[in-house]
Nucleic acid binder design. Structure first.
Lengths: 260, 260
DNA sequence: GAGTGGTCTAGACCACACT
DNA sequence: GTGTGGTCTAGACCACTCA
């Protein structure tokens, strides 16, 4: 292993792991390799969509067997950070794929699959983070955040009214223009233009009655029941980088969830 | 491997898998081992909570290396069918554990964790399956089903109104008495008393307005927004064995979901 | 054919839980 | 101490992709 000093010249290859030195408590070798790979991802050395070195190559670099690298990559693939493709290699996962979409958009049509999606940005502005948002983003109340409001329509029917808060420091260059002209998933834009990749999210779902704004923008009746979905998204190192609050019309759609 | 005829006396140990004979298309050895283990689980030879044979023992029985058994068990553990405990052995997963509860009850209190749970059975009866229920359960319309209605209260506050449909043939001996007197998770009862273990479920979530029954049993106002959760649960072999429709009060609770 | 991930084996040692 | 799962290695061959 590079960057970890020890295994002090032990000629015995089976004096495995423990590697000590840096890590105070015991950690298996493959966990350390995993951490090293994750560093490359976080630093941007290996970018979304790119091919990473082969298992053999990584084994040589880190001075461990292919099997150990394999176990590290296995876990990263299970966490959707890497994607393996037999015969081709291992790639850094990206939001620019149909596969990745469904993980973060759980609203499905009741009937069949194919439907057109239309996104309309209502508003984009910078403001000082309200206490609640600041808390969720791990910032100080009053820090700069980017606020976005938008409506998504399926087959022309307005169905989702969404508000987003993003840390101002990370999204300095985000403008309404850039967001409007961009085709494709928003997380794709964030990852390629702002170097911020969402890897995990936590959602809290409630039922709510439509307020005046929902009535206006979603075309539903006042007080009609809506799904209220509050999401916090995280990037590498479990750092929160997005708060999202959505109102979903569920007369022709439903939130799909698999318990397994 | 037992019960699979082939590897026709190949003295070469690396003439791995393919095993042919029964399986028409290629399937890795560890997948076949996995299937064999799953058979033992499904048949009830290894029951929930019990210790299964060690990896070495299974390797000897099936005539494969420990590593191959390990990979099979790894996948089964990832699917929550088995639970590994270092130093003790590998156990068949069971619903009689706090750990297993949270997988199937996603409604969490907004504030802190500790809360008392109270379950009240409103009704239990046998009836002919409505078309919709029959379709979801893979039965014929009119087949016998057990119908249950109940209310769950948290800290004394009625919060969930739930209706269940179960295949009559599998739950012949299920009575209101048995259900009322039973303490602990319903899926625990199903697994120990009726030999039916739920291993996976699919939920569709919508927002709905409280009807008269919800008003009466949950003590909410007419037309107030509720979470409507429709679940189909599956046992081994992806066989559907429960339909559940729940109405959740989300003024002090929320449906928690992790996107990862 | 060369390179990559995927499977399989055999053997070693480590960490943990009981007795 | 004994037995269990957990980690690590080394080497072999298979399945897939692309040039």
């Amino acid at each position: 292993m590079s960057s970890i000093p020890s295994n002090p010249a032990s000629s015995d290859p089976a004096s495995q792991g423990a590697a000590s030195g840096t890590s105070p408590t015991f950690s298996p070798l493959y966990k350390q390799i995993k951490a090293l790979i994750m560093q490359r991802l976080q630093s941007g050395e290996w970018k979304p969509g790119e091919l990473i070195p082969s298992e053999v190559e990584l084994g040589n670099r880190f001075k461990v067997s292919q099997g150990t690298v394999r176990k590290a990559i296995d876990e990263l693939a299970a966490e959707n950070l890497l994607v393996r493709r037999q015969g081709k290699g291992t790639f850094v996962a990206t939001h620019h794929e149909a596969r990745s979409q469904f993980r973060f958009l759980r609203l499905m049509p009741d009937s069949e699959q194919p439907q057109t999606i239309d996104k309309k940005i209502i508003e984009l502005k910078r403001l000082r983070a309200p206490a609640e948002i600041a808390r969720l983003l791990g910032m100080k109340s009053g820090d700069s955040v980017v606020f976005v409001k938008r409506v998504m329509s399926f087959d022309g029917v307005p169905t989702i009214l969404e508000e987003l808060w993003l840390p101002g420091a990370l999204f300095k260059a985000l403008t309404l223009e850039r967001l409007v002209e961009y085709k494709g998933p928003m997380y794709g834009l964030f990852e390629t233009e702002f170097g911020t990749r969402m890897i995990r999210a936590s959602e809290q779902i409630r039922a709510a009655a439509a307020d005046d704004e929902a009535v206006e923008l979603l075309g539903v009746e006042k007080l009609s029941p809506l799904l209220c979905v509050e999401r916090v998204s995280f990037t590498y190192g479990d750092k929160p980088v997005e708060v999202r609050r959505g109102l979903y019309v569920t007369s022709r759609h439903h939130y799909q969830n698999e318990l397994s």
